[in-house]
Design a protein around this nucleic acid. Sequence first.
DNA 1: CGTGCAGTACTTGTATACAAGCACTTGTCG
DNA 2: CGACAAGTGCTTGTATACAAGTACTGCACG
Lengths: 237, 237
Amino acid sequence: MPQSNGRRTSRRDIYRKLRQMVLTLELAPGAALSENELAASLGVSRTPVRESLILLAQEGLVQVFPKIGSFVSRVDPAQVADAQFLREAVELASLEDLPERLDTDIVAELRDNLERQRAGGLGLEEFFALDEEFHQGLLRLSGHGNAWTTVAAAKGHLDRARRLGLHGHESPAVFADQHLEIFAAVADGDVPLARARMRGHLRAVFNDIERIRAHAPELFAADPSTVPVRRSVVVWE
Amino acid sequence: MPQSNGRRTSRRDIYRKLRQMVLTLELAPGAALSENELAASLGVSRTPVRESLILLAQEGLVQVFPKIGSFVSRVDPAQVADAQFLREAVELASLEDLPERLDTDIVAELRDNLERQRAGGLGLEEFFALDEEFHQGLLRLSGHGNAWTTVAAAKGHLDRARRLGLHGHESPAVFADQHLEIFAAVADGDVPLARARMRGHLRAVFNDIERIRAHAPELFAADPSTVPVRRSVVVWE
DNA sequence: CGTGCAGTACTTGTATACAAGCACTTGTCG
DNA sequence: CGACAAGTGCTTGTATACAAGTACTGCACG
């Protein structure tokens, strides 16, 4: 929920669209973005495009260099690690605030979510959506559902790294099983076990990143201070 | 560090200035903001002002209602609680990642900070600045200094509530003492004790909020869906 | 006097024009 | 042939004009 009001504006649409394209790697890390080009291709003026880019820049998903250009930020390993730490801290802390009696509606929602995860034949983005929903649901179970907003805003780099890791790599079934085990511990009220399983799950996701980096180093930021060159557009294949 | 690049732009200046004015309550919760008025008083056009307001809106510090107006958001108790939870989770988690040998530079910095806190005769904003520096320093001690950026971005409502609580209330000396005790436990390598003291410290700050709300209810949001009226400008005294 | 309706002054959203600056290209000169 | 410099096309930052909509004001009318 980036903006306060729910009225439809073209900036809102464009912001969401661009954000989604960056997170799904449809816009590759390092790609050059032109306010004029984007405006023309979207059929609007520079204004809403520019304001969207400013918001994405504050999230760290794009970099704006005055008088030079705007670029999809490369995946920064340091920011990935920061997001991992933040996420782990929040999700583990929430498990300690679980109430005695779990909200039955949320529990039912989580069970349904887990079933869909195990259904198989899921596309990458479909699994990611379910994954997000599952983790946010766990947070809501302890009354801290809104904290997900902050976590989500900060984990853009982490999400992109995770997508890189799952691109044609291995089945998400392993993670679905981990989700199921976490939920089982939560349902049993075994907080220490839930914490241990959650920690293991989150770190398993995280530990793949160095391997990924070896495969596609050009998508990662080397030196944070390097300025990208206008022409060096990395095309996603 | 909201923007990527460090070049000076008027938007950057205005964003920081407005943000500071909101956080320090110089711009009161509920106050109406006019892009035209702000632009005129700052001597620039609407563009940089507007873009700054959009950024502040994403942080939840202002609310923008299309065709109606922009307002400094009232302090939302729910968002205060969310920020408190997030902050506690992050700061407690970082204490468990403290290295065997603490960075001597940061330790020296923290000692100096604590001395200045105890010096006495500090203004409210001076103490807040030292407080921020102290907590961020502790995070850096465990290598998670960058997580502070995310926490800081999310705790705008919490900070405003804290300032309300300290306005002419009690001396910050109590908190300075708590800082000292936390640091002592950290320096001793007693992680459980440091965690307990940190938790007590953070919650002591938080627990004042309901009392504050009784004193100045108009600064707090009642129903999240209520739209402020243009004329109802609450003047800060 | 009360009520309804048109008018007006304000708001933000979007489009467009201009300013300032970087980077590459190309032409010219040594 | 090589090197340097002016030129050209792009970039984002800022200013301004217009569009669409809300809310209050004041007048006319019952």
